[in-house]
Amino acid sequence: MRQNHTLNLREIVVMAFISAVFGVLYLVWIFLGQLVTGILGPVGGGLMAGFWIMAPIVCALIIQKPGVALFAELIAAGTEIMVGSVNAGSVLILGFTQGLGAELVFAMFRYRSFKLPVLMLAGMAGTAASFLTEFALYGYSQFAAGVVWFMLGTMLLSGLLLAGWGSHYLTWALEKTGVLHNFAIGRSNRQTKQERGAS
């Protein structure tokens, strides 16, 4: 299957729409996250972290081209800022590093494999990147090492489950509705079905 590797306008607009919806959901999630973090501390917040990596993984799985994960997360961050996030600055920095983390994993597989384990790895890379960013931004070096490691653990778990498995589940449910037939995910799905039918 040969395909063009640059994004066309249709893909960009679809990516923007998906990420914008996620951007709004992120805002709701931030509010929840701050409540949970306030009560349980950063460890509890860690469990929520995976949700923020969903936009890049969903978009990357649908479009399957280089740069999609990074741009999707930046668009989601941009939407959060336009709608009025009370955390605009850190959201932008985090959006960049989270997107980059997920993007690197897809790049490692040369944008050819978008199976569940790859998505889970991308989710974990995304939360790991957001952990490193928060470590620097919010001064986690001042906390006991045990707590920080535990936090990293919960964030990785959250990346694996929420970002990896969650995005996989939702995107394939979305594929069944047929709206994604014109995109890479729909094309590859049809191709495997045809191959199975032929053999």
């Binding site: 306008l9 923007a16 729409f17 914008a20 919806v21 709004v24 939407t79 336009m82």
Partner: peptide
């Protein structure tokens, strides 16, 4: 693209 998405929210 982003602006269009924003207007659709």
């Amino acid at each position: 693209g982003m602006m269009a998405a924003y207007r659709f929210l």
